[in-house]
Structures are given as structure tokens and as C-alpha cells.
Amino acid sequence: MSRFSPANLRLAQEIIRRYPVAKSATIPLCHLAQEQDGYLADDSMAQIAELVGCSSAEVLGTASFYEMFKMHSVGKFCLGVCTNISCQLLGGEELLEHAEQTLGIRPGGTTADGLFTLEDVECIAACTEAPAVQVNYRYFHRLTPQDLDQLIEELRSGALDDVVPAHGTLGKVRQDLGEDRIANITPPEDQIEPVWLRRHRELAEAAAAADAGTPSTAGTNS
């Protein structure tokens, strides 16, 4: 059973050597396989089992626990629209329906050109930026249906290839955080106002302004 390319097979063996127990490399190797193929093929799981010395059923059991390992072939872009409570309140379901129409597929489906897989996902922890969408786990916030169409267009054209690599691609470098965003080095008075606080203030200001008869400057999505 061989599914890994020769280069990836070498890499796999190197990864296994990093662990005192070969079986510990199961998840890293699942990632490697998903990076190679965009999903975790049965052949890959069988090969991983052989490499780490366990049964294929054990690899399947481990991998299937995790939502982010796909056991079936998916599109280059996995587009997940959140329909959990915050996003639902702010139009997530309508956004999903719009995505279905634009892409011509139901959640779980993949477009014929193999570019997009649509998913109806639970809270992706971006509730303050609802309705939120992930493409290959990169976030897109507060999308209107038009924003979504544009996003799809840009993804399709390749304009976002640098921002959104193909499904399965692993981040290979440490995330580069700006100095100002590293926790606890900024004195409180200099800290950037948290988004939710800013939004809370903006809404309060808008309400006050409405009361005063002045047009609001705070943007809302509704």
C-alpha cells in the first residue's frame, strides 16, 4: 500500500523518528497525507498504520474523531458557513442559502470543478464578527451575500491563493504576530480596545445619537 509520494514518505519516516513511540506520529502523518491529497484517503490511513505499527482501524478511529480530517475527497476550498446562534441571528442561515445558490451545491457537496466544498458549521469562535465564514480555516468576517459572492470569485480566480492555500496545506512557520499583539507586554492604558468593547461603545453612541436626532456613524450589518 503506497499513497505517500517518495518525498513525503521520507518526511513521514523523519517525523516518526521524532517520537519515542512510533504510534505518536499518527496525527502528524494524517496531516501530511491530507496536505498531499487534500483529504485523508483510505490508502493513506492503511499506509500510516503500517508505518506506525498499528491497525488501519486504529488510524481511522483516531482520525475520524477530528472534524478537520476529511475522509472523502473535498474541493480545493472548504467553505464553512457558521449557522450557530450569533451568526444565525445576524444572517448566517441566509448566507448559507445564498452560498448554496451561488455554488449550486448543498452543504457537504463539492462543486463539479472540484474547487469548493460547502459546509454548514457550528460556532467557529468568531461570534463577535458574525456572520462568519471560514475558507480552509482562514476567517472572513461579517459577510453580506455580496461579500460572499466576491470572496468566491476571488478564490476562483486565484487572487487569494496567497491568503488561502489549498485545503490540507499546513502552516509551516510560526505565526508572525505583531509586537503590539503579543499578550501582556502593553500597559493597559496603551492596549487596543477589544473589538466587542469598541462595538458596544459604537452601538451605544449610535443609540445616543439617534436619540439626539443625529445620523449614526457606526456601521451595522442589519
Binding site: 492503511a46 491497525s55 488501519s56 482501524a57 486504529e58 488510524v59 481511522l60 478511529g61 475520524s64 474523531f65
Partner: peptide, 20 residues
């Protein structure tokens, strides 16, 4: 170990690997 739990939560089930 040819049977294993697969999936998670209320979708958990006992399964074999396909064709094994």
C-alpha cells in the same frame, strides 16, 4: 485491533476499516 470506535459524540460507532 480490527474494530475501533470511529467518529465522535452521538455519531460514535463501532467500525472496522473499509475492506478489513
Amino acid at each position: 485491533p480490527l474494530i475501533h470506535f470511529i467518529d465522535r459524540g452521538s455519531n460514535t460507532e463501532i467500525a472496522t476499516f473499509p475492506d478489513e
